[in-house]
Amino acid sequence: MATQTTGVRSTGPNEHGYRRFQLGEFTFSRDEYFVHVAWPTGSHIMSADAFLRALQRDVAWGFFYGIVNFDGVIGTVNHYGTVDLFAGRYNDAYRKAELDHVENFPSPLILESFQAILDDWTNAGFDPFASPHETGGAFGPKAGENRRATTRRRVTARRMVGVPGDEPLRSDESGFPINRQFVDVPQDEPEIVAEPGFEGQVSAFNLFAYLSRSDVTWNPSIVSVCQDSLYCPTTEEYILPVIHGNDRVEWFVQLSDEIHWAVEDRDTGAVRARVVMKPGDVCAMPADIRHQGYAPKRAMLLVWENASPDLPQLIASGKVPTNPVEF
């Protein structure tokens, strides 16, 4: 498919069946176990499953807010219209050795290339969005495709899930069974009484039941919208496949179970803190850190974002502090 599109540069399949891709001066290739990334001043290797899990998020989120680090070396920075692809840019040792490399691309071009890589390198049995226990492996020679998984539509409510005409609720019938680790989550819906003339104007839904039926992990999806304030809850299990570097303050509300966060300096990767969140805990992630979460059991996390397009510039210029509140 992708070889016909104008922006994607790739070669035919290698001996493992996978195509090699070029994006600017970066090249991406894979073998049975690993992904190899090369740029003019260096090269890097990542496990194919870790790479595809990270790539899947970056693609599905449209490069998200700020920095999506695939690991300590490779990643993207969203400039909302263009995207930086970097190697070693947020790694102290690469920076000091002047071996880091950054290229900027129009968002559609890098998105198209990443989609093509994800499409070609994801085998039939592997779902990059699933927890490791719920999917087959990413390894081995090329074997089929899993477009059903890799092209999932991201939920983006305009007002609230369940409001007439907005994102629908999930059910067995619509293909969203209760996850094996959430079978004890009550499925009762709120009782709604609408007076005559106000049918369809009184809206409520069971968010926890909705989340218990999520078939993906580490994939914040918008369920309610108050101007630029977005509720982006997500179900988490195992390890967040990216290290998210903030360009604004981001907030976490632990709805169920437990998540551990490793927090590092956004620019150097130096360790700053560890955060353990339990049900009812609320915590901010400052705008100058990067974080990676660990969830021993599938957990419900409410990620709360301020989507204002002005924020990255306000924070980068120092007009708005990197910490959430002064007290």
């Binding site: 007002r159 609230m160 899930v161 409001v163 989550v185 009550p186 009762d188 819906e189 709120p190 009782e191 709604i192 009484v193 609408a194 007076e195 106000f198 104007q201 009184v202 809206s203 409520a204 839904f205 069971n206 968010l207 926890f208 039941a209 369920v223 309610s224 709805l255």
Partner: peptide, 14 residues
């Protein structure tokens, strides 16, 4: 009056 909602844990109301 528009109506009312009886909401329990996990229920979100607009």
């Amino acid at each position: 009056p528009m109506g009312r909602v009886r909401a329990r844990r996990g229920h979100m109301t607009l």
